[in-house]
Simulated assay, not measured.
Amino acid sequence: MSGLNAVRVGPLRQPAKQALIFVHGLGDSGSGWSFFAEFLQRDPAFAHTRFVFPNAPIMNVAANGNYPMPSWFNIYEWSDNPSKFDVPGFVNSLNVVKNFVQEQIDSGIDPQNIVVGGFSQGAALALASAVTLPVKIGGFISLSGFSRINAQLVEMKNNLNIDTPVFHGHGDQDPVISLKLGYSAKEFYTVVCGLRKYTMKVYPGMAHSTCPEEIDAVVRFIKSNLNL
């Protein structure tokens, strides 16, 4: 798994005892979220934490005029209910996330000290990982997340992380991933998939972005679910 493409930030102190894997959104890269490592490392509690920010492959995104850009899966149309979705691409990226988790386990990190999170596309993958990962981990973070390939996920899902905490933050002014889609994701993962510790917080006035209040909530979530 050494070929996994990511921006990696090592712990300030060895050995590494925890790991945060955070998956970016469409058109971004791992470096776009690497600031989060520096931000968290200001807190001594994260001195032994390793940070991994995976890089998506470059692909032609149909909804953006087939323009090549980093993307975890193709997007065929900008719609809350698209008529076509890239199921193979989504499943492939879901396996990539699984491989990043396994990489950390193989390096000696206790699975319970691993958190998987993401923004937008990455958030969708983080949520899907909550019902498909073959190992129980410490927590999942979804920032502006949504649910797709629901029928396939019902077939693929397991209950290993049914009691693993999930944090879902969403802005009520998001023009890209509407709040309606956020609520739909919560309903699917809690009602259909049975996740029992799913917390969703809505941030007034926030668009397809993040805000200090959301970041603060994420930090609290991570600290409460990792052995720091």
Rank of each mutant, 00 (worst) to 15 (best):
S2A: 15
N5S: 15
N5I: 08
V9S: 14
Q18W: 07
A19T: 14
I21E: 00
V23Q: 04
L26R: 05
G27W: 03
S29N: 09
S31E: 13
G32L: 06
G32C: 04
G32V: 11
W33S: 03
S34K: 06
S34W: 03
S34E: 06
F35K: 13
F36M: 05
F36I: 10
L40I: 04
R42T: 11
P44K: 10
A45I: 04
A47H: 05
H48Y: 09
H48S: 15
T49A: 09
R50F: 11
F51C: 12
F53D: 00
F53Q: 03
N55C: 08
M59S: 15
Y67V: 11
P70L: 06
S71T: 06
W72E: 00
F73T: 00
N74C: 08
I75H: 03
Y76P: 01
E77V: 02
S79T: 04
D80A: 12
N81A: 10
P82L: 04
P82R: 08
S83N: 13
K84H: 12
G89I: 05
L94Y: 04
N95E: 14
K98V: 11
E103N: 12
Q104R: 07
I109C: 09
V115G: 02
V115M: 11
G117W: 02
G118W: 02
S120H: 01
S120W: 01
G122N: 11
A123V: 06
L127N: 09
S129M: 08
A130S: 15
V135K: 06
G139A: 06
G139N: 01
F140V: 02
I141P: 01
I141G: 00
F146Q: 02
A151P: 08
Q152S: 06
V154D: 14
N159T: 13
N161Q: 06
I162M: 11
D163E: 15
V166T: 04
F167D: 01
F167S: 02
H170K: 01
G171Y: 03
Q173P: 09
P175L: 12
V176P: 14
I177W: 04
Y183I: 10
S184N: 10
S184Q: 14
S184H: 07
A185R: 07
K186C: 11
F188G: 12
V192Q: 15
C193D: 05
G194S: 07
T199C: 13
K201Y: 03
V202K: 07
V202P: 05
V202H: 06
P204A: 13
P204Y: 04
E213N: 00
E213F: 00
I215K: 00
D216I: 09
D216Q: 15
V218A: 03
R220P: 02
F221E: 03
I222R: 14
K223M: 10
S224L: 13
S224N: 14
N225M: 08
L228G: 12
